[in-house]
Computed example of a mutant assay.
Amino acid sequence: MAARIDHLTTSGVFTLDGGAWEVDNNVWIVGDDTEAIVIDAAHDPDAVTAALAGRRLTAIVCTHAHNDHVNAAPALAEATGAPILLHPDDRPLWELTHPGRAPDGELADGQTLTVAGTGLRVLHTPGHAPGAVCLYAPDLGTVFTGDTLFAGGPGATGRSFSDFPTIIASIRDRLLTLPPETVVRTGHGESTTVGAEAPHLREWIDRGH
C-alpha cells in the first residue's frame, strides 16, 4: 500500500521571549497501515498516539524546535520507542523546552527519510529558526514546511533566533523552485501550493523592508 498523509490539529501555548500565545498546530502523519512517521509532535501525545492507530512509529521529525512543535515529542518517543530527529542548528531552541533531554538523531540537508516506501527529502530552510527544515515528498506531490512558508507568506521572523532575509532566501531558493503544483502543508492553518505563493515573493520582500 502506498504511503498516505493523515492530519490532526492540536492546541496549546507557544512561548518565546517571555510571551505566550494560544496556537493550533498541524500534526502530519505519513505512512501506510503498518508504519508511519510523525512531523511535529505538538501539544498532545495521546492524540497523536491515537491517530497512529497501532502503526509502528519509525521517527518523530521536528521541522524546528519552537516549543509548540516539539513539546509532545519526548512523551511520544517514550510511548512508541521512535527516535526524535532535529537539525542540530536548532539545539539552542530545543534546550529551552527540553533541557537535559537531547534529540535522538540529527537531520541534515539533502538527507532522505523513507517510510512505507516513500522518500521525504530534508531541505534546510533557516530563517524562522536556524535549524528549520522542510520535508519534500515528490511521490506524494507535497512539501511539509513547518513554519517556513504559509498560505499567504513566510513564517514570522520578529523573535529570537530568526532572520527575515534568511527566510526569504530559503523560500526563494529551496521551496519556490519545486514544481508549482506541489502542495504546501504548513505548521499552522490551511495548505496552499508552491504555484499560489510564488508570485508574492517580491511583495514579501518589499513588506519586510
Rank of each mutant, 00 (worst) to 15 (best):
P199Q: 11
V27R: 00
W204I: 09
H200Y: 15
A169L: 08
A108F: 07
L140Q: 11
A72R: 15
G127Y: 06
A3I: 03
G119E: 14
I5T: 08
H128P: 00
H7K: 08
A77G: 15
H128E: 03
R174G: 05
E95R: 12
G100F: 05
N26F: 00
A42N: 13
G158F: 09
A79G: 14
E203N: 07
H64P: 01
P199C: 04
V183K: 13
G187Y: 02
A47V: 10
G152K: 01
D89N: 12
A36P: 01
P126Y: 07
G54T: 03
D44C: 11
G131L: 02
L178R: 04
L52G: 06
E197S: 08
N26S: 08
W21G: 10
V38S: 03
T80G: 12
G158T: 13
T112S: 15
D68S: 15
G31E: 02
I167N: 15
A102G: 08
H124D: 10
T49G: 15
R4Q: 12
L16A: 14
A137P: 08
D32Y: 02
H87D: 13
A73W: 12
T177K: 06
V183N: 05
T166G: 06
G18H: 10
I167Y: 06
I167E: 03
H128I: 03
R159H: 10
I167P: 01
R101Y: 02
T186G: 06
V23W: 07
I5Q: 05
H128F: 05
A132S: 15
E203H: 13
G110V: 07
R56L: 02
M1L: 05
A82Y: 01
L85K: 03
A41F: 00
L113G: 01
G12V: 05
H209W: 13
N71P: 00
V183F: 03
G105A: 15
L178H: 05
S11W: 09
L201Y: 08
A132V: 00
I205V: 15
V194E: 05
G110P: 10
P92F: 00
E78Y: 09
G105K: 08
W28L: 03
P99L: 06
V61D: 01
R91W: 06
V30R: 01
D89F: 14
A65D: 01
A65Y: 01
L93V: 02
P126C: 09
A156F: 14
T34G: 00
A151V: 04
D104L: 11
H87K: 10
T182E: 10
V70W: 03
D139H: 11
W21Q: 15
F150M: 04
D104N: 15
